[in-house]
Design a protein around this nucleic acid. Structure first.
Length: 419
RNA sequence: GUGGCCUUAGCUCAACCGGCAGAGCAUCGGAUUGUGGAUCCGAAGGUUACGGGUUCGACCCCCGUAGGCCACCCCA
């Protein structure tokens, strides 16, 4: 036998036994998107590298070390430098927004997307090189209400999935007016304590100082006394943040302030948040995250347009739901068409086709096995009902495989009998 | 990207000190004289992740590679 080929590192196959949980996780995302009046958008799986450089920032991890490069058939280095698989959805969506002149549409625009993202880092449980994300974006609304609305939507998603104890960690990191001032204060503070920083943090001090606060090895004393972004907000950012909190409180949405939550992508302004299962912080188990990005459209060559959104990891949400043993709803009952006659395939197929036309979920046994075998097989495959095709072309036996009861009726009566 | 642990049949795991690669479950077939999950019998399933090395002899010891997991890094 030829040598088998395995899936690429950090990817996995969605197997049939996992599909019910995934179907549900995706269906809830679609239904909520629809119910909250978002419109679907799809963007390419790969984009120009420059889009991510400009959008996410050169110093972000996603760009600096996790970019999944793709080349064409000729595979030149030049081509490889040109495109990358998308590490996150927002940059592509805003690129499309600018490219199609969507700012002239009646707004604010509400867009959603569900699909695979790619990051070339070292895999671990819940962390994959290809993972699926549900994303929503509101573009063109600078007010605080949408911030609260979107965070509530995230919470609702987890609730409908059956996850309890999900917390939104919340912070505000200011905007173009006040962030430079805060950044200067922070750099000054950290520079004075450079000897107590890790190597990574010392490097980030120059490239992306806010990220130093993300460092889990940050000296607790240094962290505790570090200047907080919320204490250096300009009046507008202050008012925005207070309003967001007030709205969340009025909705009864659970959140906790986290002054060290800065998020890794450069485009964020003002509101930032991440969703965690309570008590599972720091286990790279963020279920989702997002924030406001009022400067992104301009960075990508569009006119200044505010925006806010989140990405929720479907993989991790399914994982968390399984860990909490959230119930997966049952599929509609399965009907198996079987027969004692080895040579009546036409009758079996006709019966199955008629039942399917009547809206039932049907599989049909095409084997010449004895009836007992066929019923055994039907039961193992999870069928609730068996329809036994007999000599008489007009009547069949409908057997309840769970109750071990059966009765004779016509084919057209079966759907109603199953109800 | 850094460090650690791990990898034997589809799954869960055995195999003494280096001495013939096995079991349970699952799958498929047969029987239980023609309506099911039980029971019995049988079959199939292996380059012991891959490649080297040591040895009379390697699943076992050594090196390398790949993959998985854990902790980092970071995020979903």
């Amino acid at each position: 036998m030829a040598r088998p080929i395995s899936a690429p590192r950090g990817t996995r196959d969605l197997l049939p036994e996992d599909s019910a949980a995934w179907n549900r996780a995706e269906a809830i995302a679609r239904d909520l998107s629809h119910g909250y009046a978002f419109d679907r958008i799809e963007t390419p799986l790969f984009e120009r590298v420059e889009l991510f450089h400009r959008g996410l920032g050169e110093a972000s991890d996603a760009v600096e070390k996790e970019m999944f490069r793709v080349g064409g058939a000729t595979g030149s280095d030049e081509e490889k430098a040109e495109w990358a698989l998308r590490p996150e959805p927002t940059a592509g969506i805003i690129r499309a927004f600018v490219e199609h002149g969507m700012h002239v549409r009646p707004g604010p625009l509400r867009l959603w997307m569900l699909g695979p993202m790619f990051r070339y880092d070292r895999p671990q449980a819940g962390r994959y090189r290809q993972f699926t994300q549900w994303d929503v974006e509101v573009v063109g609304d600078a007010g605080p209400m949408v911030d609260a609305e979107v965070i509530e939507l995230g919470h609702r998603y987890f609730a409908e999935l059956g996850l309890t104890d999900v917390v939104a960690y919340l912070n505000s990191i200011g905007d173009a007016v006040c962030r430079p001032g805060y950044r200067a204060v922070l750099v000054e503070y950290l520079a004075a304590r450079e000897d107590r920083l890790t190597d990574d943090s010392r490097r980030r001090l120059r490239t992306n100082p806010l990220r130093v606060l993300d460092d889990k090895d940050l000296d607790p004393e240094v962290a505790a006394a570090a200047p907080r972004s919320v204490d250096h907000l300009c009046d507008a950012c202050r008012a925005h943040f207070d309003a967001v909190r007030g709205l969340l409180d009025s909705l009864g949405v659970r959140y906790e302030l986290d002054h060290r939550l800065v998020r890794g992508l450069d485009y964020y302004t003002r509101t930032t948040f991440e969703f965690f299962v309570a008590g599972r912080r720091g286990q790279q188990q963020a279920l989702g995250g997002g924030g406001r990005y009022d400067g992104l459209a301009e960075l990508l060559g569009g006119r200044p347009t505010p925006g806010i959104g989140f990405g929720i990891g479907i993989d991790r949400s399914v994982l968390a739901a399984a860990e909490q043993e959230a119930p997966v709803p049952e599929e509609p009952p399965l009907v198996a068409v079987v027969s004692q006659q080895p040579d009546d395939l036409a009758a079996r197929l006709a019966a199955a086709t008629a039942l399917r036309a009547a809206g039932l979920r049907v599989r049909v046994d095409g084997s010449a096995r004895k009836l007992g075998r066929q019923l055994e097989s039907a039961a193992k495959l999870g069928a609730r009902w068996a329809v036994i095709v007999g000599d008489d072309a007009h009547t069949v036996v409908l057997r309840d495989l769970a109750a071990h009861e059966q009765r004779e009726l016509t084919l057209s009566e079966v759907a109603a009998a199953i109800g």
